[in-house]
Design a protein around this nucleic acid. Sequence first.
DNA 1: AAACTTGGTTTTGTATATAAAACCATTTTT
DNA 2: AAAAATGGTTTTATATACAAAACCAAGTTT
Lengths: 249, 249
Amino acid sequence: MDDKYRVPAIERAHLILKEISQHPGKLKLIDLSRTLAINKSSMYSLLLTLENLGWVEKETGETYRLGRELSRLGHAAFQRSNLNETFHKEASLAKLRLGESFQLAKLDGREVLYIAKEEALTPVRLASEPGMRLPAHATALGKVMLADLSNDDIDALYPADQEPFSHLTVNSMTTVQALKLSLEQIREQGYALDLEEAVIGFSCAAAPIRNAQGQVIAAVSCSMMLPQWEQKKQSCIEEVCKLAHQLSD
Amino acid sequence: MDDKYRVPAIERAHLILKEISQHPGKLKLIDLSRTLAINKSSMYSLLLTLENLGWVEKETGETYRLGRELSRLGHAAFQRSNLNETFHKEASLAKLRLGESFQLAKLDGREVLYIAKEEALTPVRLASEPGMRLPAHATALGKVMLADLSNDDIDALYPADQEPFSHLTVNSMTTVQALKLSLEQIREQGYALDLEEAVIGFSCAAAPIRNAQGQVIAAVSCSMMLPQWEQKKQSCIEEVCKLAHQLSD
DNA sequence: AAACTTGGTTTTGTATATAAAACCATTTTT
DNA sequence: AAAAATGGTTTTATATACAAAACCAAGTTT
């Protein structure tokens, strides 16, 4: 690193925050000073500043924990990527064309983490708020992202001795075998469907978003109620694939 | 503020992060330098340091957005208090008894900041991911915490000349008058309800968590879909009040 | 209760982060 | 294509953040 243009005060702030995050509510000024080898008086100014900014909070007993301003910034950092922006831009257009809702999500272990959505003005909507999680194996979004993993990865993710799949509806898959079979098909066709596997009355199509290296980094889906699904299934798949392609690098 | 023990470099870092969070991917070095009235060369060092720490990320086109280390720290900022630990311990029991989801939140200005949750395995769940914010006046959690404030505090928080309340659903309150009236009742009964005020199809009960001085420092809530609400309303209120009492000092 | 810890607060001299200006590589204008 | 502007990088002088030590208030020890 360019040793010349560092600003140590910020680097120290970072060290302090990291240390506090590892022992929340345990460390006093003197502890931080000792473990980080920063002089008491310097630590005093640093902590006072961090406290004024709301990055740390002092408790009774003079011990420190991370503060709310930090969680505010952290939350903003979560909703950052330009993936998000382009999703909203393109999905709003797709929403106009199709009249249904679109979702953006990432895979987090065995769960789908919803990042953003563009919601159509349909009377009944699926509650896919950003931040929500659902089991990956029971959603189109989840399956299309799992399909990027190898069979070995899937085995590692779903060990045989683990509890069986939670089934959200009667249509949810219940075994790893069924999942692998399904993923095989998804790899071939390039998209995934969820036919009332997560919520009765709702179906869904999802397609993968890839980075420049071809790895799946996220996925988009379009969800709708069953009556609409019968009519729009084909165009739904098309829109989702098109959208996923636009969001890929 | 004690003007003597500030460390400006950190305060500047804070300003920069805040500015970037408001215009992610839009601002270049020169823009930040201008709007924050910080010299180009200083900004250069500051940004270089922030980038090395993973607090910001530079994009092609030399524009900046918040980085992953910041979201990591921000996330850690939630899982902090021992309030949190006891919440998870007790709420998981309450969840088993009631079969519904519980939330822990703090009041931050006019917003409710969700801190933690214990989620029941219901197919459709409210998206109360830690870090999420909702207008306080439209949620049970928010109202029960606002109820700890005096009417004067409420007036200060919601100035007459400000924009009117954002209503999330048709049931959301729309005026300060209505809010004050509602708070009066909440103070008497000791808990707050949200009857589809935040999300259509969801209702919610919340009770306040107090410190040793009796001040409200946080709140817990239990949310569920309408059909369940009809059956469990009473036991929901009981569980929430019991939980809040356990979490109070 | 006097002496000793412990841990937060002040003071002061010095090391260093920052502002200003010069610099340079690209891009835009004429 | 020369001139001007834009925006990132370097240099240098100075303002200021930090380390060390002294200080003080509370809590322990003997």
